[in-house]
């Protein structure tokens, strides 16, 4: 039972970056934007978070800096895809390459190539009074760093925003039929641009959580597909915040399973457990692709006549 609680707690912890990024992507996806570049945005968030924390000595200020820097890069993506109307996949791929090159360049310029990482302020476990004392449940749900609570609290808020708010309706509509939105006076460009910026906020925070919540330093290429998995979580979660949460937990559990298998001496070569999240992602895509809420105008730039 303790083992299980431990496992579930780990699953939740590992699900969080996916959930944070996914809660952003779900809005930009609904607005008709496929942002393959989320991976790169998270990488940028991870590095700028560490730098920010080092600079200010405060993890939250570090996260804020991570968000600001990441949003700036999300704006670059938005500029190319929404204003210039370039192909979203290609720009996303370019952003990933850019993020990879830039983070390496900056990381080496700032921290040097082979020095040990400096000590920074990180997100520490903050048990919730009383609740964390509940047997099992306390360990599973209430002994985590604050960003994890935030991520899960955001789920119902995002769900409400998506389906009950004016903004949510606009976002869902520009992804389905931008032309129709134009005829009722909605600014499609602005709506899509803002949706991308918002997903940048979340990707930046998610990246900062990876480098400062799960670890306490930056390594080159540390996101290792986390951004793509967040994209997959949105597809698997059928484009709703609630679905994203469930998908994230599935991916988180598969990650936790991977660590478990690695820790146990099962004789299975370590690479195979490491493949689990990627394989689960592929399976999940095959499972849901045929019957999904994918917006009709997904990945199609809106060109006003």
């Amino acid at each position: 039972m303790n083992e299980l609680a431990n496992f579930l707690s780990t699953a939740i912890r590992l699900a969080t970056p996916t959930l944070l990024a996914g809660l952003g992507i779900v809005f930009s996806e609904r607005a008709g934007i496929v942002n393959i570049g989320t991976e790169g945005l998270m990488l940028i968030g991870a590095l700028s978070g560490v730098m920010g924390s080092l600079l200010t000595g405060n993890v939250w200020l570090g996260a804020l800096i991570a968000i600001i820097v990441t949003v700036a890069f999300a704006a670059v993506f938005a500029f190319f895809t929404v204003i210039i109307k370039a192909d979203q996949t290609v720009i996303g791929t370019g952003m990933n390459l850019l993020a990879s090159g830039l983070t390496i360049t900056v990381n080496r310029a700032v921290f040097g190539a082979n020095t040990s990482p400096p000590k920074i302020d990180t997100f520490r476990t903050t048990p919730i009074p009383l609740l964390s004392k509940i047997p099992y449940l306390g360990e599973i749900f209430f002994r985590h760093p604050v960003p994890i609570y935030l991520a899960f609290l955001l789920v119902p808020i995002a769900q409400f925003m998506m389906f009950r708010s004016n903004t949510g309706l606009k976002v869902r509509s520009v992804g389905e039929n931008p032309k129709a939105c134009d005829t009722v006076g909605i600014n499609v460009t602005r709506t899509r641009f803002l949706a991308i910026l918002y997903s940048g906020v979340m990707a930046g925070f998610a990246g900062a959580f990876v480098s400062m919540g799960q670890l306490s330093f930056f390594t080159e290429g540390m996101i290792a597909g986390g951004g793509f998995i967040a994209l997959a979580a949105v597809v698997f979660g059928n484009y709703t915040p609630l679905g994203v949460m469930i998908a994230s937990l599935v991916f988180g559990a598969s990650n936790a399973l991977m660590f478990r298998l690695q820790a146990l001496s099962t004789g299975i070569p370590s690479q195979f457990p490491l493949m689990i999240p990627y394989i689960i992602t592929i399976f999940s895509l095959c499972l849901v692709s045929r019957k999904s809420n994918k917006p009709a105008g997904s990945a199609i730039p809106y060109i006003k006549e």
């Binding site: 190319f80 210039i84 109307k85 370039a86 290609v90 850019l98 990879s100 090159g101 390496i104 080496r108």
Partner: peptide
């Protein structure tokens, strides 16, 4: 750093795709 090459290559992707 040699990784600047990667940055330039990435920028070429952006500017070519956004050639309009």
């Amino acid at each position: 750093n040699a990784s600047v090459a990667e940055v330039i290559q990435a920028l070429i992707i952006l500017f070519i795709a956004g050639r309009m």
